[in-house]
Every structure is written in C-alpha cells, then in structure tokens.
C-alpha cells in the first residue's frame, strides 16, 4: 500500500522536479565548459598530432610523420633528457628535505607558526618574480650567492653563463620554491600519527632517528605517496621557471635548460606548428601516464594504509 502510494507520487512528480533534472542542471555549467575547454581538446590533441596543422586552416593528415621528425630532431632528445634530469633531481631531493623539515617542525619547538608561514611563502609567490630574483642572486658579479661563497673562500662559477651550472641553478631554485608546499602536506600526515606509538618506542629505548625511520616514515607513506605522485607530474610539466631563466637566450644556454613543455610552447606558439607541437604533447602525456601507472603499481609495495 505504502509502496504503491510512493509509486503514484513518483509518477506524478513533474520532470522538472526530479533528482535527475536538478542534478544535471546543477552540473551542466561545469560539464559544458569542461567538454569545450578540456575534453574536446584532449581528443583534438591526439588527432592534431597526426596532421601538419598550422595556426589557421585545417591541417592535412600526415600519419606518423610528426613523430618521425621528432625522433630525428636532436632538440627533442635534449628536451626529453632535461625533463628527466630535472625530475630525477628535483623530486627525491625536494621530497627528502620536505620530509626532514616536516619531522622537525612536528617537534615541540617555539615559533612553529612562523616557520610554517615563511617556508610556505615561496610557493605562493609568482614563479616569474622568483625567477627574476634568483637570476640576480646568481649573477656572477653582483649576486649574493657568489658573494657568500667568496666569504667562505670559494670562487663561485658563472651560474648564468655557463651551461653546466645554468640548469643546476634552475633545479636548486625549483627545490627551494617547492619544499614548503610538500612540507605542509607531510606535516599534516605526521600530525595524524598517534603519539602513543612514539611513547611505546621510547619506553623500549629507541633513539630519535630510529623513531623517525621505523615509525614516522612507514606511517606517513600515504601522504608521502601523494606528494611524490604530484611532484613527478609537476616536474615533468615544468615551464614557468625554465621560460623566465632562459629569458629569450639561445644556443648552449637554451639547450642546457629546454624541457619538453618549453619545446611544446616553442613549436606551437613561436613557430606556429600546432600539429608538430601536439605530437610532443602526446609523448609527454604518455610519459606522465606511464610514470603514474608505475607508481600506482608500486604503491602496494611500500605504502601502508593503516
């Protein structure tokens, strides 16, 4: 009887009064804009990578010619190599420093709030401005990096003119900028670790270092995993800092630091070769996807969810 009444009332409900109507109405602005600006472009990028699309007019279908050209171009290999070097240095060094800092910040010490804010400051600052400031700091004549090195009796290199040091300088700045953000996420993970674990370990006579290795690290592996995944993705996509450091120079300096997204930018928006640039974007997408999948596959080996 009751069920029947419900059925009747459900049938009587006008279309504009249903969950379906309101649900779709409410998500429609997001969905429509997303289809136009994200989903459509994803499929179009794959298609474009198989054409010789220029700025205006449709491109002609040329099969895998873009990819062949990419692999034959030494610049592509430089970009691939630089992106990997950047990632391989930035992620482990940055995350390790963040983890140690988060552990220290989780101790009972004064000024914790101030530390949190100051370490976080570079991650909210415009990367373009950070690039300008550090270019000046690394200036071999007037910069304070070499002035400080000279104070310790070290002759600093020509950071901004020597291709060998140029890219290293960029990676250092990237690490400097990123550690605060990762530190905050890891700190939140640390604060979720119940204090009783440490107390128990202390009773057994464990040292601080043992506590860190045997309790802290295993228990925050979920946060750590999240930070590493995010760092990998962002590092492979680095652009702003590279762009501002290269600052329209060319030759060995540009080659020392050009990464994949820099290459995509240049091909598409400097040389107006949209199809060719899309091919490189597809390669970047495949690399990011592969790296992410490998990490999720490796996740069960080292990440503990309780």
């Amino acid at each position: 009887m009751k069920g029947e009444m419900e059925m009747v009332s459900k049938r009587k409900k006008a279309f504009y009064n249903t969950d379906n109507f309101w649900g779709y109405l409410f998500i429609s602005p997001l969905l429509i804009l997303m289809l136009i600006f994200s989903v459509g472009p994803i499929f179009f990028a794959f298609y474009m990578s198989l054409t010789d699309w220029k700025l205006s007019g449709a491109g002609e279908f040329i099969g895998l010619a873009n990819f062949k050209e990419l692999f034959a171009d030494p610049a592509t290999w430089t970009e691939l190599k630089n992106s990997l070097i950047y990632t391989v240095f930035k992620v482990p060094v940055g995350v390790s420093i963040s983890l140690v800092l988060a552990y220290f910040l989780n101790q009972r010490i004064p000024f914790r709030g101030m530390f949190r804010v100051v370490y976080f400051l570079p991650s909210i600052t415009m990367t373009v401005a950070i690039g300008l400031v550090w270019r000046y700091l690394f200036n071999s004549q007037y910069g304070i990096v070499n002035a400080i090195l000279a104070f310790f009796g070290i002759q600093g290199p020509y950071w901004m003119a020597d291709p060998k040091y140029f890219f290293a300088a960029i990676i250092l700045v990237a690490i400097w900028q990123g550690i605060g953000y990762d530190m905050i996420i890891l700190l939140a993970g640390l604060q979720n670790v119940p204090g009783m674990y440490y107390e128990a370990a202390r009773m057994e006579g464990a040292t601080s270092f043992q506590c860190f290795r045997k309790i802290t690290v295993p228990l925050i592996t979920p946060s750590l995993f999240f930070v590493i995944i995010m760092e990998f993705m962002n590092s492979l996509k680095v652009f702003d800092l590279i762009y501002i450091f290269i600052n329209a120079s060319y030759g060995p300096i540009e080659d020392a630091a050009r990464t994949m997204v820099y290459g995509i930018y240049q091909k598409a928006f400097v040389h107006s070769r949209m199809g060719y640039a899309s091919a490189e974007a597809v390669i970047l997408f495949v690399i990011i996807l592969a790296v992410t999948l490998v990490q999720f596959w490796g996740e069960r080996k080292w990440v503990h969810y309780d």
């Binding site: 379906n20 994803i42 652009f239 997408f285 990011i288």
Partner: peptide, 27 residues
C-alpha cells in the same frame, strides 16, 4: 543530489583531472 550516472560522471572528472593541461593547451 542522487542523479543518474553520478558516480560514473565523478570518475570521468577524475580521469580528466589526470590529463596534463599542457596537452590540451594547443587545441
């Protein structure tokens, strides 16, 4: 709101979120 295909659409959003913006910026 309990609308049809809600969880499927939600998963779809997650998948789109994973695609790097640089991939779509040209289109």
């Amino acid at each position: 709101i309990d609308f049809k295909y809600r969880s499927q659409l939600f998963l779809f959003l997650m998948a789109v979120l994973m695609v790097p913006g640089q991939m779509t910026i040209i289109a």
